[in-house]
Design a protein around this nucleic acid. Structure first.
Lengths: 200, 200
DNA sequence: GACATATTGTACCTAGCGGTATAGTTTTGG
DNA sequence: CCAAAACTATACCGCTAGGTACAATATGTC
C-alpha cells in the first residue's frame, strides 16, 4: 500500500496553539483565520486533521483540562501535606497560571462558559463546557468530604458551603486576572481568604 | 421651519433593549441584526439615533452603570444601618439581579470586560469598560476607609485587603450566576462569606 | 519508475457582517 | 396645499465568516 505525503506540522503543537486562540478570543471571537494563522497551517489541513471549528474547540477544551486544570487539582490531594497548605499551593499555582504573561489571562473554561448565554455555541461544545466548568467544584466537595484532616476538623459537615466558597474565590480570581489585575494583588487577597477560612 | 416626521420608537426603551443584547452576547457576539431586531427598529434608525455599533455599546454600558450598578452601590452607604447589614443588602440585591430570569445572567461589565483580551474591541469602548469595571472596587475601598463603623472596628487598617476580598467575591458570584448556578446556592455561600468576614 | 495515497496551497462558495445610499413616508411652517 | 425637514424601509456596498473543490506536491509500494 502506498502511504502518501507526510504531515508538515505536529498536531499537538497546532492544537496547543488553537487552545491559546480560543482562550484569548472565545469560541465566537476566534475566526478560522485567527486559528489557522496561529496554528501555522491552512484551512484544509485544519479541516482534515480536526474536522471543523466545533471539533477543534472540543479538542482544545480537552487539552486545556488535561494540561492546565488537572495538574492544579492534583495539588489538592497530595499526601503528607496539611490541608491548608494544599489549598494554598492549589490556589497559588492557579493564580500564577492565570497571570502568566505567555498566555491569555484568566481561565479558558470560565471565559468560554460565559459565552454560552448567547445561545450561539454549538451543542456538543456547550455540554462539554458545562461539565468541565463544574470539575473544580466537584473536586472541592470531594476534598472536604473525604479528606482525613477535613473530617477531624469537622469541615466535612459544611462541605458544600466550604466548596462553594472556594469555588467562588476561584471564579473571582479568574475574572480579576482576566481584567489584568496583577498577580501580587491576587496573592495578597488570596492569603487573606485562605487564612480566613475556619479551617475556616 | 418644517419639523419633520415623528420618531416611532422611544430611544430609552430601544437603548435598554440594546443593553440586554450586549449583556447576553457581548460586543463581538451581538450583531446589528440581533440588536435592531430586539430594539424593534431598523438599521438606519439605529445609526441616526446612536451613531454606530461602538457608540451604541458605549451608551448601553452607561445605561447599565446608571440603572443596574449605581443602585446597588448606594446600599453600601445607607445611613443608620450596621456595616455588616449594608454589605449583606448590597450583595443580596446584586445576586438577585444577576440571577433575574428576565435578564441575561451575570454581570454586563464582567462579561464584556473579559472580551477585551481578544484585542478586537474598539478603543473608546475598551477604556470605558476598564474604568467601569473598577467602580465597585473603588467603592469598597472608600467604604472601608471612610465608614465610621469600619474605623471603630479598625477595618480601615486593611481596607485594601478587605476591598479586594469583597471584589473577588463580587466577581465570583457574577461568574457563577452567568454559568447558571441558582440564586439559593449563591445566597448560601454569600452568607457564609459575609459572616466569615472579621468584621472580619 | 509508475501508481496509489495522503497532505498542501489556491481559489472559490454562500451567508452574514457593519455600514450606507436612496427612495418613500409623515410631519409642520408658510 | 405645498415645500422643507425628519424619520422609515428597502436594497445594496465591500468584507469576512465558516467551509470546500481541485490541482499540485510529496511519499511510499510494487
Amino acid at each position: 500500500m502506498a502511504s502518501g505525503r507526510k504531515k508538515l506540522f505536529d498536531e499537538k503543537t497546532a492544537l496547543n496553539a488553537a487552545m491559546n486562540v480560543f482562550w484569548q478570543k472565545g469560541y465566537v471571537g476566534a475566526s478560522l483565520t485567527d486559528l489557522t494563522t496561529r496554528m501555522g497551517i491552512n484551512k484544509p489541513s485544519m479541516y482534515s486533521a480536526f474536522g471543523n471549528k466545533e471539533a477543534l474547540f472540543i479538542k482544545a477544551t480537552q487539552c486545556y483540562i488535561e494540561t492546565k486544570l488537572t495538574p492544579h487539582v492534583e495539588l489538592l490531594f497530595q499526601e503528607g501535606i496539611p490541608l491548608k497548605q494544599r489549598l494554598k499551593n492549589h490556589m497559588m499555582s492557579i493564580v500564577t497560571m492565570q497571570c502568566d504573561p505567555e498566555q491569555a489571562k484568566g481561565c479558558f473554561l470560565t471565559f468560554c462558559q460565559s459565552e454560552l448565554v448567547s445561545g450561539d455555541i454549538p451543542e456538543k461544545a456547550e455540554q462539554l463546557l458545562k461539565e468541565a466548568d463544574l470539575i473544580p467544584l466537584q473536586m472541592y466537595c470531594k476534598l472536604f468530604e473525604d479528606d482525613e484532616e477535613s473530617i477531624t476538623l469537622e469541615l466535612n459537615k459544611n462541605s458544600q458551603a466550604n466548596a462553594l466558597s472556594l469555588y467562588t474565590f476561584l471564579k473571582g480570581t479568574a475574572s480579576m486576572a482576566r481584567s489584568g489585575i496583577d498577580k501580587s494583588q491576587l496573592e495578597y487577597g488570596l492569603n487573606a481568604i485562605i487564612e480566613g477560612i475556619k479551617i475556616h
